[in-house]
Design a binder for these strands. Structure first.
Lengths: 133, 133
DNA sequence: TCCGGCACTGAAAGTCATATTCACTATCGG
DNA sequence: CCGATAGTGAATATGACTTTCAGTGCCGGA
């Protein structure tokens, strides 16, 4: 994986990346949660550094930033294949859903709008299994 | 339509609704734009009143609030049938796209997550026709 | 080894779009 | 006319980023 390149990252940014990588795919963190984890490993680290680390990793394409409509804050996860997200309106939990709009559908929509579609995101909202009981 | 019920709205909320209704379907406004329009019609109106008007109309289900991932602010439009949104990454324009996830697909995803899916939103991002030249 | 520079850092301050609080005021059923 | 309730504008608070500032550290070249 990115190991060899990762070595060139400033150590604090690497620390941030390791938090996400350690959790694995499908685990989501808010900026605040990542900061909390980072402080546990390196108490003197500042919020700005974690923030800049996230920004760098996102720009490098190593992590995905998911903007949750209506939640006020974004969540981050290890870069993976495109997928949809489900957010429970009661507990706020965010779960990955293995689904993406068929390429054919996206192409059809692009033709209809006359522009170029870069990304298509699907956001599902409702009650998760636990909260819907 | 809602005419009879609309009469019961406080006049300032009705003013806000009329701005959206006057523009028709498929036209999007940010909170700030709505406030600007409102002031033109009633210069003494306060931001809070417009804000509360929007909140009320949204709760009544007369307008839709669309949270645009990564845009920092939501846009509002007259309530209509469910549809997807396309946002140009260059000019920021938001356009309606007549498409919604097939009910069958949503049902299949709900079964897979084990929860209940209330809404499914599709957000497309890319370059609009004018910006993609 | 010593130096110049640029990347990296933490704390603090700034931004921006809402949300909420406060002290009235207008309205409506009696 | 009255009291309760809803509506109002100004001001303030909030939350999540985002940028600025004043160093610090590290690296390649002389």
């Amino acid at each position: 994986m990115h190991a060899t390149v990762a070595k060139q990252l400033p150590k604090n940014y690497k620390l941030v990346y390791d938090i996400l990588r350690g959790a694995g795919h499908g685990v989501h963190f808010t900026m605040g949660e990542i900061y909390a984890h980072a402080r546990r490993k390196r108490p003197a680290i500042g919020f700005s550094t974690v923030y800049r680390g996230i920004a760098r990793l996102r720009d490098l394409g190593w992590i995905d930033e998911i903007e949750l409509p209506g939640s006020g804050s974004a969540v981050y996860e290890l870069k993976g294949r495109p997928h949809a997200h489900f957010r429970c309106e009661r507990c706020g939990e965010v779960a990955d859903v293995h689904y993406q709009l068929p390429a054919r559908t996206v192409a059809r929509l692009a033709a209809r709008t006359g522009g170029r579609i870069g990304t298509a995101m699907v956001m599902l909202r409702g009650l998760c299994r636990r909260c819907s009981v």
